Amino acid sequence: MYKVAVIRNWFLPISETFIYSELVNLNRFTPIVCCKKVLNLEQFPFDPIFKYKGKEELCEILRKEKVDFIHARFGLTGADLLSVKQALGIPMLTSFHGFDLPTNVKSMKKYKGNLEILFKEGDAFTVTSNNMKKILVDFGCPKNKLFVHHSGINIDRFAFRNSEFPEDGVVTILSVGRLVQKKGMEDLINAFSKVYAQDKNVRLRIVGDGKLRHTLQKQVKQLNLDKVVTFVGALSHPDVIHEMHQAHVFALASTTAKDGNQEGIPNVLKEALATGLPVVSTLHAGIPELVRNEQSGLLVPERDTDAMAHALLQLIRNPDQWHKMAKKGRKTIKRSFNTETQINELEHIYDLVINGLDNEGKE
Score class of each variant (00 low, 15 high):
residue 96 F to C: 04
residue 165 F to A: 09
residue 199 D to G: 07
residue 45 P to Y: 08
residue 357 L to K: 09
residue 61 I to G: 13
residue 84 V to D: 11
residue 35 C to M: 08
residue 4 V to E: 06
residue 237 H to P: 06
residue 344 N to R: 07
residue 33 V to E: 08
residue 21 S to C: 07
residue 260 G to N: 01
residue 137 V to P: 00
residue 211 K to L: 09
residue 203 R to N: 03
residue 320 D to I: 05
residue 79 A to R: 10
residue 203 R to T: 08
residue 164 E to R: 10
residue 337 F to A: 03
residue 358 D to K: 15
residue 149 H to A: 01
residue 67 V to N: 10
residue 56 E to Q: 13
residue 142 P to N: 09
residue 312 L to G: 10
residue 111 Y to C: 00
residue 135 I to T: 10
residue 191 A to I: 07
residue 29 F to Q: 11
residue 14 I to V: 09
residue 60 E to F: 12
residue 70 I to P: 03
residue 182 K to F: 10
residue 19 I to W: 09
residue 83 S to D: 15
residue 235 L to W: 04
residue 333 I to F: 10
residue 24 V to T: 13
residue 144 N to H: 13
residue 284 H to P: 06
residue 340 E to W: 04
residue 221 K to Y: 10
residue 129 S to E: 09
residue 145 K to C: 08
residue 178 R to Y: 02
residue 238 P to F: 08
residue 10 W to L: 13
residue 63 R to L: 14
residue 37 K to M: 09
residue 282 T to P: 07
residue 302 E to T: 12
residue 360 E to L: 11
residue 349 I to H: 04
residue 255 T to G: 00
residue 160 F to A: 09
residue 46 F to I: 06
residue 205 R to T: 07
residue 157 R to E: 15
residue 263 E to Q: 11
residue 248 H to T: 11
residue 303 R to I: 00
residue 226 D to Y: 00
residue 75 G to A: 08
residue 236 S to V: 00
residue 200 K to R: 13
residue 350 Y to G: 02
residue 306 D to E: 07
residue 319 P to L: 00
residue 191 A to L: 02
residue 278 P to R: 06
residue 154 N to S: 11
residue 47 D to Q: 14
residue 129 S to R: 04
residue 303 R to L: 08
residue 226 D to C: 04
residue 71 H to K: 04
residue 90 I to P: 08
residue 360 E to N: 13
residue 18 F to N: 12
residue 302 E to C: 07
residue 161 R to Q: 15
residue 247 A to Y: 01
residue 227 K to N: 12
